[in-house]
Write a protein that binds this DNA or RNA. Structure first.
Lengths: 254, 254
DNA sequence: GAGTGTGAACAAATTCACAGCC
DNA sequence: GGCTGTGAATTTGTTCACACTC
């Protein structure tokens, strides 16, 4: 299924900004909710509020896809759902394998958001022989030995890694060698992959650390450095915000 | 810039770029691994490779924290671990509550990365009375009714929401009312919070959709005889990284 | 009048490239 | 010679504001 190479459709400038791509799923979710409530049209203002962004950004984002709205009216919900789905490649079915069926892998297997969005859990794979054959979310777990065959038989191009950190790179290598070109990595480790393979990572601990950074800053702004004992709940006030600049101990070892 | 010792770097506190903050945990993880191997110093080049970023970016990031390296030598691993930990607020202990102990909540409760990074699971909360008292990851689940009391008694300022989408906003409101000012949201929904409360979200389905977008693009590009044969040892990955660029069908129904 | 679509202004983040120090 | 630290250049992303269409 090719397209003319060296010749662009030119309908709209291809090259949708990465930041926009990352927001399309957000819009899609909001639109799907509207669709289920049979709302026929929506303005950029309303949709932006539902998606948690501002309307200028939303209109700009949509402008990269094309002119799908009607001035003075807004956007047709169904039509926009279709356009965004198509742009994201969700009008086709993506078989996905999940490797590592521990607590997290099981949670992912049970996650409903998959099926409803064009993704299908094609297989669950785990290294523990005791898991083999046991159904999780209605799908029997298969052993890692068969990884390559499973990937090939199902034409899988997207893999999810939910193994312990120590196994992740090895699993990744095997997935890539078997033909997977997109990986969602939940293991807290950096994966090395060849060019042409996309990796996205989700790291719990990183998200918490970012929150802690901001939390610390809030705490440092209202009360001075009063740490140690107490562990004050410190229900924020957040009025004047922006203190001059919190000052931290500045201890310097060594 | 500024000073090196006896005087804290004046550039701190005030305006560390958000993008930099988001990478600090990555550096910290790489540094911790080096520390465990008793590596004394590391260059920006080496550390960058371990963290999966490029060295110029890493040096720039560190420059916002202060001048913690030594020209011609590199960075002292232990010292840097300490500085980044302090900057992120990880030298103190953050009690965290997890609300919604389904598959995902249980996975989070069992996640080891918590304790090792200054976070402590103070309580698990679920709305199902049948769960109450049952231990998950060694911690007894408590009922939602006691949410406010739990938050207050433990001085919790960080909450993790792992409930179904329908319950998330309500749980969020109660957490915030009880004093929580940072929320990590796993439910696929937009949370409304007052000013002063930080929300970060992790959405599985969104990550997959972004991968699908790139995957689709790759598929539509099969024509160019990209690089040579197999085995390309390229060492590089990046979340949200994108390959060269291709084109997509871009059909446009009238 | 209402609300999209978009150039132009602005801001944030990344990369370059090299001076400065060990 | 090796490596950090950082201004300057560049790229990417956001916001403004208004012409234009329905």
């Amino acid at each position: 299924m090719a397209t003319g190479r060296t010749h662009r459709p030119a309908t709209r400038s291809r090259g949708i900004p990465e930041a926009t791509v990352a927001r399309l799923p957000l819009y899609l979710r909001a639109l799907t909710a509207l669709s289920e409530r049979s709302v026929p049209t929506v303005s950029s203002e309303e949709l932006a509020a539902a998606a948690g962004v501002n309307s200028a950004k939303l209109r700009k984002d949509f402008s990269y896809l094309g002119s799908y709205g009607t001035r003075g009216v807004g956007y047709d919900v169904e039509y926009l759902v279709y356009q965004i789905s198509r742009e994201l490649g969700l009008t086709q079915d993506w078989p996905v394998v999940i490797v590592g069926i521990g607590n997290l892998g099981a949670a992912l297997a049970n996650y409903g958001g998959f099926a409803s969005r064009g993704f299908r859990v094609a297989a669950l794979i785990d290294a523990d022989p005791a898991m083999a054959g046991k159904p999780v979310a209605g799908i029997p777990v298969q052993h890692t030995d068969d990884l390559e065959k499973i990937i090939e038989d199902n034409g899988v191009s997207i893999g999810v890694i939910a193994t312990p950190a120590g196994a992740a790179q090895q699993v990744c290598d095997r997935l890539v060698a078997a033909g997977v070109t997109s990986i969602l990595n939940f293991a807290p480790t950096v994966l090395n992959v060849p060019d042409g393979v996309d990796v996205r990572k989700v790291d719990l601990s990183i998200e918490l650390q970012i929150l802690a950074f901001h939390e610390q800053r809030k705490a440092g702004e209202e009360a001075a450095a009063t740490e140690g004992t107490g562990a004050v709940p410190a229900v924020r006030d957040e009025s004047g915000d922006k203190g001059p600049d919190g000052d931290v101990p500045a201890v310097m070892p060594a």
